Simulated assay, not measured.
Amino acid sequence: MTREAASTYGLRRPERSERTPPSSEPAITAITMATVPVKSTPASPAEAFAQILDLAEHNTRRPGRTKMFNVLAAEAGDPGHPAHPFFVRRYAAVVGHVAGALEHAKAAGGLKQDTDCVGVAEELAAVMDGLQLQWALNPGHYDMTTRLRRYLDRTLRSLTGDGSGLNAK
């Protein structure tokens, strides 16, 4: 947060003692890293998108860890945070995983040739994180998985030459 924005809205950055105690940061980082599901390489964009949906559904069943993950990801934006390298690697892996499936499909003629596979993968990671944050703020009134499914279906339909989406076989 910038000082100007903080001043405008009467906000201040919490002192480290008001956030997670430094002694527990490595433990929280370890727990978060250990709970990230690893999936096999998807055979198609639809399968890659289905894996993303599976992760979103998984996250709704563990609200405490999901909220902790959101907080840790935000705090890890500080390059000095112990989880910073993990989140840099995590996002690179997620983008690589999805982009690889998209590139494979593009080469096989299943996606439009002008598809920016890395750009789409980066957007999907950002959309999922944004939806997850909205869900964390109001889980009883926000259906993250359904919203993500609709977004992924629209995205896939816009990328495939035949307009097929998630429900296509």
Rank of each mutant, 00 (worst) to 15 (best):
I28C: 02
P85D: 14
Y142N: 11
R12S: 15
Y151P: 02
T29P: 01
P21K: 04
K112I: 10
R149G: 03
E75H: 02
D129S: 14
R3E: 14
S23Q: 08
G165S: 01
T41G: 12
A99F: 05
G64C: 06
E15C: 06
K106C: 11
L131T: 01
A6V: 07
V88Q: 11
W135S: 08
N70R: 14
A43T: 13
K67H: 06
P63G: 10
A6Y: 00
Q51T: 09
Y9H: 15
L124M: 12
G96I: 00
T29L: 08
P139N: 07
A50I: 02
R149K: 12
T8L: 15
L152R: 05
I28A: 10
F49N: 00
G163N: 06
G110Y: 03
E103Q: 13
H97A: 06
A136Q: 06
W135M: 01
P21S: 13
F87Q: 07
G100F: 00
R150L: 11
D116I: 05
A99M: 00
V120S: 09
E122Y: 00
R61D: 02
L159G: 06
H81I: 09
E15Y: 00
M68H: 07
G119R: 01
R13H: 10
S7H: 13
V120E: 00
M128I: 08
L159F: 09
G80C: 07
D129Q: 14
F87Y: 13
V127G: 05
A50G: 09
A92T: 07
F86Q: 04
Y142S: 04
T20E: 11
A48Q: 01
N70I: 14
R154A: 15
A125I: 00
A107M: 07
H84E: 10
P85T: 09
E103C: 04
L11F: 13
M144P: 05
G140E: 11
T41N: 10
K106Y: 02
T20G: 03
T20Y: 07
L152P: 04
V38C: 09
L72G: 06
A93Y: 02
D114L: 09
P45E: 04
E57Y: 08
E75G: 01
L148N: 07
P14C: 09
N167K: 14
A92L: 08
H58F: 12
H104K: 14
A5P: 00
L133W: 09
G110H: 10
A46D: 02
N59A: 14
P63Y: 05
S7I: 12
M33Y: 03
F86H: 11
L159C: 10
N167Q: 14
H141Q: 13
I52L: 13
A27R: 03
L111R: 05
R3S: 14
A92R: 05
T60F: 07
Q113W: 07
R12G: 12
H104L: 13
Q132L: 12
E18R: 09
L11E: 09
E15H: 11
Y9G: 10
